[in-house]
C-alpha cells in the first residue's frame, strides 16, 4: 500500500512523455518515470520514494521494441526481464536478467528500471558494459544516442526529465564467448555477494562487476591487469582485484575481505572458461 497519493499517466509517445514530465515538474509534482513499478511501489511503502505523479513508459512503442533480427539488436527499456529471457537475443543479458529477483517479479521488472533504479546492484548493466552497448535517451531536448559506458558512472547520468528509450548491442558481440556468475550469501534468490559478467572479444577479456562496490563497474585498469599475458593468471587476478574501485561493500551480506576473495575466485573461473588455461 502506497501511503500517499500520486497521479498516474500513461503517455503513448516519447514526445507526450517528455512534455508531461516538463508540465508536472513545473507544477511541483516531482514526477517519476515508471517502468515495472516494483521499486517505486516498494520504496514508497517505506517512505523512501515520494512523488505526486508517475509516468508509465509501457505504452510508448519505442520503449517496447525487441528487435532480435536487426543489427544492432534493439532492446526497449520497458521490456520486462522475462520477455528478454524468453526471446534470448543476447545470451549474456539473459543470464544476468535471470538472476535478478525471482521469476514472478521479473514479469514486471523492466530492463530500464533495473538499470535506473535506486537499488544499486543494477545487474543487467553488466552485459551492456562488456558489449559496449549504445543507449538511446529521450528528454526535453529531443532524442540522443550515446555509448552506455560513457553515460554510466556509478549510475546512469541522465539529465532531469530524460529517460532511456532503448539499448543497442552489436549483433556479433552478442554471441561472443562469455561468462556469467552470481554468488549470494545463501539461496537462489536475492542480492549478490559478487556478480561477474565477462566477454572475450579479439582475444581480450572484458569484465564487469556488481555487488563488490555500492555501484556496478567496468574498469580499464582491472582489464589491463587481467589481459597482461606476460604474467601468470594468479598474479593477473591479484593485480586486477587490487585495482578495484573503492569502497568495497562491507555489510550483512558479506565482509569486504570475503567479497574480494569471492571476486578473485570468480575471476579464476572466468579466465578458465574463456580459454586462458595455458596461463594458469
Amino acid at each position: 500500500m502506497v501511503p500517499f497519493d500520486f497521479a498516474y499517466y500513461r503517455p503513448q509517445s516519447i514526445a507526450e512523455a517528455t512534455a508531461l514530465f516538463a508540465a508536472l515538474e513545473r507544477d511541483g509534482k516531482r514526477p517519476l518515470y515508471y517502468g515495472g513499478g516494483t521499486e517505486i511501489i516498494t520504496l514508497s511503502r517505506l517512505n523512501l520514494v515520494r512523488t505526486a505523479a508517475v509516468i508509465d513508459m509501457k505504452a510508448i512503442p519505442e520503449c517496447r521494441v525487441l528487435d532480435a533480427s536487426a543489427d544492432p539488436l534493439v532492446f526497449g527499456a520497458a521490456l520486462s526481464l522475462t520477455e528478454l529471457e524468453e526471446a534470448n537475443p543476447f545470451p549474456l543479458l539473459t543470464k544476468a536478467a535471470r538472476e535478478v529477483a525471482d521469476r514472478t517479479a521479473r514479469n514486471q521488472i523492466t530492463l530500464g528500471g533495473n538499470i535506473c533504479g535506486q537499488i544499486f546492484y543494477r545487474e543487467t548493466a553488466l552485459p551492456l558494459f562488456v558489449a559496449e552497448a549504445d543507449v538511446i535517451v529521450a528528454g526535453p531536448y529531443g532524442v540522443r544516442q550515446c555509448r552506455f559506458n560513457d553515460l554510466f558512472h556509478q549510475q546512469l547520468q541522465l539529465g532531469r526529465g530524460e529517460f532511456i528509450v532503448q539499448f543497442k548491442v552489436d549483433r556479433a558481440t552478442a554471441t561472443l564467448p562469455h561468462f556469467h556468475r552470481k554468488r549470494r550469501k545463501q539461496g537462489e534468490v536475492g542480492y549478490p555477494l559478487v556478480t561477474i559478467a565477462a566477454l572475450k572479444k579479439d582475444g581480450a577479456i572484458r569484465v564487469a562487476f556488481s555487488g563488490v562496490c555500492p555501484f556496478p563497474f567496468r574498469s580499464a585498469e582491472v582489464e589491463a591487469h587481467l589481459n597482461d599475458r606476460s604474467r601468470p593468471a594468479a598474479e593477473r587476478i591479484q593485480a586486477a582485484v587490487a585495482a578495484f574501485p573503492r569502497p568495497i561493500l562491507h555489510d550483512i551480506e558479506g565482509s569486504a575481505d570475503y567479497r574480494l576473495f569471492v571476486a578473485a575466485k570468480l575471476l579464476e573461473d572466468a579466465l578458465r572458461e574463456l580459454g586462458e588455461e595455458e596461463t594458469m
Binding site: 513499478g37 516494483t38 511501489i41 516498494t42 511503502r45 514472478t104 514486471q108
Partner: peptide, 24 residues
C-alpha cells in the same frame, strides 16, 4: 510481505503471474 518477496499475493494478469502488492 507487501514487498514482492513472498508471492502470497500472486494473481494472473493476461495469464502472467504478477505480485499484486507491486502493481497498481
Amino acid at each position: 510481505c507487501l514487498n514482492g518477496d513472498c508471492g502470497a499475493c500472486t494473481v494472473l494478469v493476461n495469464g502472467t503471474p504478477i505480485k499484486s502488492c507491486m502493481m497498481l
